[in-house]
């Protein structure tokens, strides 16, 4: 189980996360939505231990990763998989080696087992005969799919997806959404998904949360999102520029 309590994170004078609380039970998929730049990816990185929060706790399998020793953190991290927004494939390795990387470091599979698993995982994300290519030879969407294959290859208990369907065509987005659902059903994987793709969110989520100005302003089941009268959520879901969320104000502030 993942439990996040009262997380605060600042960058200089800018507060990005202000007392965020959330809980993800075993086998549950939580989708986090919100405008660009509100701290969704920061929250995800804080949960996996890549960013240290100013205060608050992140408890995974009863271990507070904000306070535990690096060796314990590494043990917990081995149970987690992270799909990066920009794929973060290793440039110097080919696709096979990229997907095999986690298998070599986190499992005891032999070379034949690794080969079989890599081919299987690439097929699951709709990729064939790309093993010999370097990441530079792939399109953005293909890189994203390789990143997903790399993450699911070693069968982590928790998977964190940072915009998994961004840059993919609608059909492939649907395939990835189905993949997330099947991982949950078959392997009881708990997932936190950051996305702007509401179709995908409705399809995969057990619970949807919305972040605004560093705080969770809404939390509920997909049906509740559709029926809520929260005007922030409504504006976001409808994709309207008119409403309480002022994009221009935020851009001006960032400048």
């Amino acid at each position: 189980m993942i439990k996040v309590e009262n997380i605060y994170k600042n960058f200089g004078k800018k507060s990005v996360l202000c007392g965020v609380n959330l809980e993800v039970c075993s086998g549950q998929t939580l989708v986090i939505v919100g405008s660009s730049g509100v701290g969704k990816s920061i929250l995800l990185k804080t949960i996996v231990g890549l960013i240290k929060p100013e205060s608050g706790s992140v408890t995974i399998d009863n271990v507070d990763i904000t306070k535990c020793a690096p060796s314990d953190l590494q043990k917990i991290q081995k149970k987690m998989g992270y799909v990066f927004q920009e794929a973060a494939l290793f440039d110097s390795l080919n696709i096979f080696e990229n997907v095999a990387f986690g298998l070599r470091t986190l499992t005891n599979l032999d070379e034949q087992g690794i080969r079989n698993r890599v081919v299987k995982c690439l097929a699951m994300v709709g990729l064939k005969n790309v093993e010999h290519l370097k990441p530079a030879n792939l399109s953005g969407g293909m890189k994203k799919r390789v990143a997903i294959a790399r993450t699911i290859s070693y069968k982590p208990n928790y998977i964190f997806y940072d915009e998994p369907t961004t840059g993919l065509d609608p059909i492939m987005s649907d395939i990835i959404s189905d993949l997330i659902i099947s991982l949950k059903k078959d392997l009881n994987v708990s997932s936190i998904v950051v996305t702007h793709d509401m179709n995908s969110a409705y399809k995969i989520a057990d619970k949807i949360m919305m972040i605004y100005e560093g705080k969770i302003i809404f939390s509920g089941a997909p049906e509740e999102v559709k029926s809520t009268d929260n005007e922030y959520v409504q504006q976001f879901v409808k994709g309207s520029r008119y409403g309480p969320i002022q994009q221009t104000d935020r851009i001006f502030e960032m400048e």
Partner: peptide, 15 residues
């Protein structure tokens, strides 16, 4: 590798 999050990816892959 740092600016393209490859170092973070190494951490998440137990390295």
């Amino acid at each position: 590798m740092k600016v393209t999050e490859q170092l973070d990816a190494l951490y998440t892959l137990g390295t």
